[in-house]
Design a protein around this nucleic acid. Structure first.
Lengths: 189, 189
DNA sequence: CCCGGAAATCGAGGGTGACTCGGGATAATA
DNA sequence: TATTATCCCGAGTCACCCTCGATTTCCGGG
């Protein structure tokens, strides 16, 4: 059930190319956002465009591979948070973590949002997982009486997305202010 | 200093084409968002691509023309709001109005955001105006003691953008929930 | 009514990018 | 070394953006 271990290992040249593509793509996404030119990425990696598509059949597949480790770390963190802190602290920390993660590539917030809707996206599983963790932490905060009874997991997910997007559009500082403000709006006083 | 009245009136065929382009563009933007294909718009309007560029040198110019009336209405509304209601009501009504406006075309929230940053954008004046009205209403709500003293006009603008974007990404209902939550976070209790 | 020139239109053309696919190259294995 | 499954290459197709010189169309004056 793991994403990693499937059929035969890759041929040596294939493994090399895949690695170079990932490195190059990370740099390109970092600089130009998730909509960076795939042809340029292939070129920079010293590989033909067909090779890129051979390894990653879609932009989402490439992004998913790129985010794999990062996401696993995030999931682990999200799973361990409930034990470490008061429910509300855990939730806000989680929101901050996800928002910081989304800041990796410009456009990532929207990209992840699409991944959550589109069941066929290579990112769907990851996005569902993220939403699930959010839901859980929100539920615990609600049960602890820290969150308004009417605040849903979807609300918190929306806040996280909106904050991430704001970070891209304006500045991290403005995003942080929005986050604080939203948390204040969700909590009981 | 007005945008409207400048040099000679358009030639008859030019006026006709311009009108058809605007109609077609409105439909296309409505269906496919502000990034709809300009070539397709020209084609649907029964006009060559060069003609479109003749009338509207950039996508932003086309959008600006398309939003002209809508914006003037919005500005008028925003200017009259302070007299009509309690400061906080006026502000939240304004936020709702702008968010509803941004729902006209998918991608408009981000588009307007760019227009606010980019001084050369054909939308810059409009966006600045929007932000100005927001600032004013926010200031009055703050002075009335309804808004937290630390809440800036930029914060409110960010909230409006984020709410608009959320409406595009998820649903109007979710956007409304985010708005309510944000207002709760900005107000004194 | 016709004509000259300003105004407007046309659309080929140059660039960029997504994505496909069949032939050729190459690494692994016997 | 020979075989073959695997992998890579990149030209080709299509869509889109945007420019610009050639051409057409309108319009006001003679």
């Amino acid at each position: 059930m793991s994403t990693t271990g499937s059929a035969r290992p890759l041929r040596a040249d294939a493994r090399r190319n895949r690695e170079r593509l990932l490195q190059t793509a990370d740099a390109a996404f970092g600089e130009h956002g998730v909509e960076a030119s795939l042809e340029q990425i292939a070129r920079s990696a010293g590989v033909a465009i067909g090779t890129l598509y051979g390894h990653f059949p879609s932009r989402a597949a490439l992004a998913a591979a790129l985010l794999r480790e990062r996401h696993d770390e995030l999931f682990a963190r999200g799973d361990s948070l409930p034990g470490e802190r008061v429910a509300l602290d855990a939730l806000t920390e989680w929101m901050r973590l996800v928002a910081a993660h989304a800041a990796a590539y410009h456009g990532l917030a929207e990209f992840l949002g699409r991944g959550l809707e589109d069941e066929n996206s290579e990112l769907h599983a990851d996005c569902t997982r993220l939403a699930g963790i959010t839901e859980r932490l929100a539920g615990q905060a609600r049960e602890a009486g820290a969150l308004g009874a009417h605040v849903t997991g979807a609300d918190v997910t929306a806040v996280i997305s909106a904050v991430s997007w704001t970070g891209e559009q304006t500045s991290p500082g403005q995003a942080e202010r929005l986050l604080a403000l939203a948390v204040r709006g969700m909590t009981t006083r």
